[in-house]
Simulated assay, not measured.
Amino acid sequence: MIVGIGVDLVDIGRFERSLERTPRLAERLFTETERTRPPRSLAARYAAKEALIKALGGSDGVHWTEIEITPEASGRPWFTLTGSTADVVAERGIRTLHLSMSHDGGFATAYVIAESAA
């Protein structure tokens, strides 16, 4: 059963300028592994994290660096959640998170569907 959906769109150029103006921003938003990626990929990951928060219905107990987008062997993106963020998802009965991300034409987008078992 779908319990939440979220979508987000990020202007890659604007996001990149924000990272340049605020050097510690990347540390607050991304895990160490994610920070090795290029700006367009970081913009898509930011969109994914925003879309997840929207699908959850809010950010209470959710921390940016406890959300990591990790690719499967096929390249499919997947959420790896830790700490209180993982607890929030479990407490809300969410069993599966579906994630789709893309970047093209100067924009990055992400879509998340949260499903419960029932």
Rank of each mutant, 00 (worst) to 15 (best):
I2Q: 07
I2W: 08
V3M: 05
G6E: 05
G6F: 02
L9I: 15
V10Q: 01
V10N: 02
D11T: 06
D11C: 11
I12Q: 08
G13K: 12
R14C: 08
R14N: 07
E16D: 12
E16I: 00
S18T: 03
S18R: 09
R21K: 14
P23D: 04
R24S: 13
R28W: 08
R28T: 06
R28D: 02
E32D: 02
E32H: 01
R37C: 06
P38F: 07
P38A: 13
P38V: 11
P39H: 05
R40V: 07
S41C: 08
L42I: 14
A44C: 14
R45M: 12
A47D: 01
A48N: 05
K49V: 10
K49P: 02
A51Y: 06
A51M: 09
L52Y: 06
I53K: 12
A55W: 03
G58W: 01
D60N: 15
D60Q: 15
V62A: 00
H63K: 10
W64P: 14
E68R: 02
I69V: 15
T70G: 00
S74W: 04
R76P: 00
P77F: 11
F79A: 06
T80G: 05
G83E: 06
T85D: 09
A86Y: 02
A90R: 15
E91L: 09
G93I: 01
I94T: 11
T96M: 11
T96H: 14
S100F: 00
M101T: 13
G106A: 14
A108R: 05
T109L: 12
Y111D: 01
V112F: 07
I113E: 03
A114D: 04
E115K: 09
A117G: 14
